[in-house]
Design a protein around this nucleic acid. Structure first.
Lengths: 209, 209
DNA sequence: TTTCATATACCTAATGTTAGGTATATATTT
DNA sequence: AAATATATACCTAACATTAGGTATATGAAA
C-alpha cells in the first residue's frame, strides 16, 4: 500500500531535498507540500488525505507544535513525523507531547527516513537513534507509560467494548454502571492515548489489544 | 404491505405478551400461534402463509432448531426470527446455522421487534444490538463471508475514508460532493454489509480492505 | 426500451459521541 | 497523614451518525 505524505517546512529547498530523497521510494508518494502549519491545515480541509505529515517544528504563522495538536484532535489517525535540528531538545519533547508519533533529525539518511515512515504507518513510534540521550531517555519513559500500563483494567475493558461497536449505554448496562461513568472513562482513554474519536479508538484497539 | 406472522412459544403468556406488543403495529398481523414446532408445521400444512415465524428455541416435541431446518428446506421464502434468553448462545448459533434470518432477545422492546420484522421481510438479516458479544462476532464473520462485500468503487472509497476517521463532512469536501450524498453511500454500505455502526465499519475495513 | 445499478442530493428526528466541566469514595503510595 | 490513582456519577452544548424517507440522472443490461 502506498504511503501518502505531506511535507511541511518553511525552507522550500529542504522540501525539495526530501522529495528527491523519497522520489525513488516506490511506495511513498508526496501528495502535498506546505511552508507553514496553516497551509497544511488548508490542504487537509480541502480533503487531501495523507497518511503521514512530515513537518518541521519552527515555521511561521502556525508552527509544528500547534499543527500537531490540531491534527491530533481533528485527524486522529493521521501520523505526524517531526523533523528537527539537533539543538532543539525542548521543542522536540513538546512535539511528541503534542501527539507526534515520530522524530528524525534533518541530516537523516534515506533509508532511515523510509523506515520511519513505514514504522509510523504501522501504528508504532519512531525515534532516531542518533539523538541526544536525554530525548531518548525521556521518550522511553513516555513509551513505557503510554504503551502498557497507561490504561487501567477498567479502561482497557471499556475500550475493547467500544471497539466491538457497543455504545456507551450498552456498555453501561453490560457493566451495570451509569452511562456517565462510561463517558468519563471514554474521556480518560482519549486523554491517555491522545486519540479523540471513536474510529481512532477502534484502530488503536485492533492494533494494540 | 401487511406482514403476517406466526408466534411459537411453549409459554402461552409470552405469546400473549408479544401479541399485545404487536397489536398496535398496523402493518403486522398475527395469523397464528403455536406452543411447539410441530404445531407450526401443522399450521403451514393447513395452508396458512405467514411472512415470518417468530419462534422460541426450546420447545417440546419439535424445538426451534429442528423447526427452522424444516422450514428452510420446505418453505425457503419463509423467514424465521429466533427468540432467546440471554444464556443460550450455543442454541442461537445453531438456530442461525439452521437458517434463521434474525435473532432478538426476549426482553426486546416494541420498536426493535417491529424493526426486526421489517428487516427480515426485506430479505436482510437482523441481529439484536444488545447481544452477547460472541454471537455478534460470529454472525458478523458469517455475514462477511456470505456477502463477499459487493461494494461499488465509490462505496469502497468512502468506507476507507470512514475507517481513517474522517467525518461525513470531511469526506464530502474531499470528494467535492454533498454531505447528504456521503450519508446516502454510508447507508448503502450499512445495508450491503449488514453493519450499522461506524465502529463496525472500521472493524470491517481494517479486516477486509 | 424499459429496467436495474450506481451515483447524486435533500430533509427531519432520534440517537450517540465529544468536550467542557464538577464531585465523591476508596485504596495505594509516599 | 497527605497525595495520587482509580472508579464512580452527574450536567450541558455542540457535533456526528443513524434511520426513516424522497427524488433525479446516467449508463449498462435485459
Amino acid at each position: 500500500m502506498t504511503i501518502n505524505i505531506i511535507i511541511a517546512d518553511d525552507h522550500q529547498l529542504f522540501i525539495d531535498g526530501i522529495k528527491s530523497i523519497l522520489y525513488k521510494a516506490i511506495d511513498i508518494t508526496t501528495i502535498g507540500e506546505a511552508n507553514n502549519g496553516l497551509e497544511v491545515l488548508k490542504l487537509l480541509e480541502d480533503g487531501i488525505t495523507p497518511d503521514v505529515i512530515l513537518t518541521d517544528i519552527r515555521m511561521p504563522i502556525i508552527d509544528g507544535i500547534q499543527l500537531t495538536k490540531t491534527i491530533s484532535k481533528t485527524y486522529p489517525n493521521l501520523k505526524v513525523l517531526a523533523l528537527s535540528m539537533f539543538d532543539q531538545t525542548a521543542d522536540v519533547i513538546e512535539m511528541l507531547n503534542a501527539g507526534a508519533k515520530g522524530y528524525v533529525t534533518k541530516n537523516v539518511d534515506k533509508s532511515e527516513l523510509i523506515e520511519a515512515l513505514h514504522t509510523l504507518v504501522k501504528g508504532n513510534y519512531y525515534i532516531s537513534k542518533n539523538l541526544p540521550f536525554d530525548i531518548q531517555d525521556w521518550f522511553e519513559k513516555k513509551l513505557g507509560h503510554a504503551q502498557e500500563s497507561n490504561l487501567t483494567k477498567r479502561e482497557t475493558e471499556i475500550l475493547q467494548l467500544i471497539a466491538k461497536g457497543r455504545t456507551s449505554i450498552q456498555i453501561a448496562k453490560h457493566l451495570k454502571l451509569s452511562k456517565y461513568t462510561i463517558d468519563t472513562h471514554r474521556k480518560n482513554i482519549h486523554k491517555k492515548l491522545g486519540i479523540k474519536s471513536n474510529t481512532g479508538l477502534v484502530n488503536f484497539a485492533l492494533n494494540n489489544l
